[in-house]
């Protein structure tokens, strides 16, 4: 059974990698999006948005430096949603069925699918980080290493959210709604583009919501990890969100309890 599960996991991961290699446009657009924010948006806002010294930073930083972790989170957020999109597509096209009729526990199959997506999302994030470093964003060498576990955890959490959404979205067309109601609110209501104290100055309620946003936790986890530090609170929120989303997704894909049975 263990060997069977391991072979299946490797199979699912290599399929995801092969698909990724074949979809170069997806890779390029996944990179162009955060790079546009970094090169253009951040450059434009550099002078408008001053960032005070807040941990983990020990000195005044440029706005580009501040939003880099947020953009890493963005890469993973989009990747998580994209893989959920591809799962809705797979389900409409039937290849999700091929996966689900395999003789392995459904929770294992879904978790494997999640891990495969995270592998891709971490690769994308690292490539983005290398480009950002080449552009002049200073990141301590150790940061490249310490950021990896953070990227894996945040990738898992955002991927699990995608998995959950895919179990509840009935059709591909509904996916445009995900963009408006999940991606944008999660991204803008977080510490990705501005520190929480900045939001608090103009609207304490929004700051409160942003504080509870799991994406904020993911971004802060990545931010601290980039400088070799560990943000326990962010890690715990990310971890609990991951468990919650994954549990709900597995429930959603359960043949008797979740959405599968209500779908004709």
């Amino acid at each position: 059974m263990m060997m069977h599960a391991l072979r299946a996991l490797i199979g699912i991961m290599s399929r995801e990698c092969l698909r990724f290699v074949h979809q170069r446009e997806r890779f390029i657009s996944a990179l162009v999006r955060p790079l546009l924010w970094l090169f253009i948006f951040a450059a434009g806002f550099r002078s408008t948005l001053g960032v005070a010294i807040i941990p983990p930073y020990e000195t005044y930083i440029l706005y580009e430096v501040y939003i880099t972790p947020g953009l890493l989170g963005m890469v993973q957020l989009f990747n998580g949603m994209q893989s959920s999109l591809s799962m809705v597509y797979d389900r409409e096209m039937g290849s999700m069925k091929t996966l689900l009729v395999s003789p392995l526990p459904r929770s294992f199959l879904l978790t494997s699918k999640l891990l495969a997506g995270v592998l891709i999302s971490v690769i994308q994030a690292i490539v983005f980080l290398l480009i950002a470093a080449a552009y002049g964003i200073e990141i301590p060498a150790i940061g490249f290493l310490t950021v990896l576990p953070a990227l894996i955890l945040s990738g898992l959490m955002l991927g699990a959210l995608g998995l959950l959404l895919s179990s509840f979205i009935k059709q591909l067309e509904n996916f445009a709604g995900v963009m408006n109601f999940v991606i944008f609110p999660m991204f803008f209501l977080s510490s990705a583009l501005y520190p929480l104290w900045r939001i608090k100055e103009s609207n304490p309620t929004l700051a409160l919501i942003a504080g509870y946003n799991p994406f904020t936790a993911a971004v802060e986890l990545i931010r601290f990890a980039l400088y070799g530090q560990f943000n326990l609170e962010a890690a715990l929120i990310t971890l609990f969100s991951l468990l919650f989303f994954l549990g709900m997704a597995i429930w959603g894909y359960n043949p008797s309890k979740g959405m599968m049975s209500r779908r004709s």
Partner: peptide
């Protein structure tokens, strides 16, 4: 009823994926 092959992968890759799922 609907084809569930991965059109971007080769015949062999599709079959290997299935074999892996079955251990």
């Amino acid at each position: 009823q609907q084809s569930t092959l991965d059109l971007d992968l080769t015949v062999r890759q599709n079959l290997l994926y299935h074999a892996a799922l079955h251990g």
